[in-house]
Design a protein around this nucleic acid. Structure first.
Length: 467
RNA sequence: GCAGGGGUGGUCGAGUGGUUAAUGGCACCGGGCUGUAAACCCGGCAGACGAAAGUCUUACGUAGGUUCAAAUCCUACCCCCUGCA
């Protein structure tokens, strides 16, 4: 129990529209409203590589939530440093929501540098080789110091092709770690160890001396076609795309979340939140549906603010991944966000949404940008290819991002081939736009019940290949 | 002019009688990248034929020579660098 916020949740999820298993909704967090389905750019080291926060916040990209990584920030600069600087938001000046991965994925990706025991994981730092110990408790403590808005439980991510026995052991360990995560997390919230609490003064939320917390966000999506079947009076969302006041309403109440203007007539919905961190559980079990189902049931028993599917896209066949999602996602709590961790390609996002997933994250748009790959409505484009040397077309003829409106493939290739950092910056910008804009179109499609057509057309076009 | 050093594949640069179609870097060409050990990693890179193993041709300034065998040794020539005149 959080004494000062009895009854209030850290996070609220509401569904605005559904089509088949796909859902369009809103996640209310203490740092703003997130329209779902959502793609979260990965910002491991408190930075989304290659993009300024201004660009992420601006209308063009309008990323509502990004990721941070517990393991990386714990090693460098260190949890104590970030705590001393007031938390990760204040440290980097990011004003919107942040989800932090627990370090669980590093248990998998740093395979040769770690040793797993019941207690936790002994890592050899990839930076200097020193020995470090991470456990559910440590992960929760670090994430409290970071002050992220959504905390992930500490899990073990087994290889995609794990045999049933191994996957079960791993799943059981993850469940025990989940329980320990929950316990330590709750203690830390009671102790107010979370640095991400939004300060309130004069009816405004403030996170630093000068910057008011950007608690509200513009209504980004055109959602006037929300069906009448949606609950409550907010069936019509007008003025799509218009700027809504960024300032907090003159409310004197504690943490409410945002004037995200939903309806021209209806009272903007204000949801009061607890101003504490939210905690998500992670379902494991590799490709074994029976294990996944059991993992889900027992994770829900522990109780979390949202549920993630972990351990996918880690070596298993793609069709297997889709099957697992299809089997498990619909069984996840309807009233909580469903998060597919680490996925994926544009096609994966569409297929995930079609199976009921609300949240995604992936390094693909940012990492691949730095290695010369643009993702377009016509599939992958390798800017290094000689065929683009004098190609004066934009990366993607259908893309409306500022890079595509201004630069040619020939120029971008030149920048890449000469090793200019601007190549990475521009490709990152384009790729993030493509991912975020695709999700915006997905949301619109679900709200107007066109998702099925959208999905078919999107996949057909992307399969056609780059001209 | 004299003395010394040197000319190697797109480029820089190893290699001093056979295991060398010639190490390596760069450039170039192609591929990969899914909760970021990633501005990274992998492959190709004389030509022709072949699915491949492989076969043939042409190559270490130029032209000769020694040798079973030469990028490697010898001779002449051409060119470059440094020093002295």
């Amino acid at each position: 129990m959080i004494s000062s916020n009895d009854g209030l949740k850290a996070l609220e999820f509401e569904i605005l529209a559904t089509e088949g298993a796909a859902r369009a909704g809103l996640i209310h967090t203490r740092r703003g409203v997130i329209e779902t389905p959502v793609f979260m750019p990965v910002g491991t080291q408190a930075t989304v590589k290659g993009v300024r926060f201004e660009a992420l916040e601006a209308e063009e990209l309008d990323a509502r939530i990004i990721l941070g990584n517990t393991y990386h920030l714990w090693l460098r600069p260190g949890a104590d440093v970030i705590r001393a600087c007031g938390g990760v938001h204040k440290f980097g000046s990011w004003r919107r929501a942040m989800l932090t991965d627990s370090g669980g994925f590093q248990v998998w990706s740093l395979g040769e540098l770690r040793k797993i025991t019941e207690d936790g994981v002994k890592f050899r730092s990839h930076i200097d080789g020193s020995s470090r110990f991470m456990s559910p408790e440590v992960s929760m403590e670090v994430q409290a110091a970071l002050g992220s808005d959504i905390v992930m439980m500490f899990d073990e991510c087994a290889p995609g092709k794990s045999e049933h026995d191994m996957a079960k052991q791993s799943m059981e360990l993850t469940l025990r770690w989940g329980k320990r995560s929950r316990i330590r997390f709750d203690e830390l919230q009671r102790e107010e160890a979370d640095t991400g609490r939004i300060q309130i003064s004069n009816g405004k939320f403030e996170i630093s001396n000068n910057d008011e917390c950007e608690i509200s966000n513009r209504t980004a999506d055109s959602i006037d076609e929300v069906s009448n079947g949606i609950s409550n009076a907010r069936t019509s969302i007008s003025n799509a795309g218009t700027e809504v006041s960024n300032k907090i309403p003159g409310s004197t109440s504690a943490i409410s979340n945002l004037p995200f203007e939903i309806s021209g007539e209806a009272e903007p919905r204000q949801i009061r939140l607890s101003n504490s961190q939210a905690l998500f559980g992670i379902v494991q079990g590799a490709t074994h549906v029976d294990l996944r189902r059991e993992s889900l049931r027992r994770t829900v028993e522990i109780g979390f603010d949202g549920y993630a599917l972990g351990g996918l896209s880690v070596g298993e066949e793609k069709t297997v991944m889709y099957d697992v999602i299809e089997e498990i996602a619909p069984e996840m709590p309807v009233d909580k966000p469903r998060y597919l961790m680490g996925v994926g390609t544009p096609e994966d996002l569409i297929e995930g949404v079609a199976r009921g997933v609300d949240m995604f994250d992936c390094v693909l748009p940012t990492r691949n940008a730095r290695t010369g790959q643009a993702l377009t409505s016509r599939g992958k484009l390798n800017i290094k290819n000689a065929r683009f040397t004098t190609d004066t077309r934009p990366l993607d003829a259908r893309c409306e991002c500022s890079v595509c409106r201004r630069h040619t493939r020939a120029y971008l290739r030149h920048l890449y081939m000469t090793g200019e950092m601007l190549a990475s910056i521009l490709l990152t910008h384009h790729n993030l736009f493509f991912f975020l804009d695709t999700m915006k179109r997905v949301r619109q499609a679900i709200r107007s019940h066109n998702f099925s057509d959208f999905r078919r057309d999107f996949l057909a076009e992307i399969a056609a290949g780059v001209e």
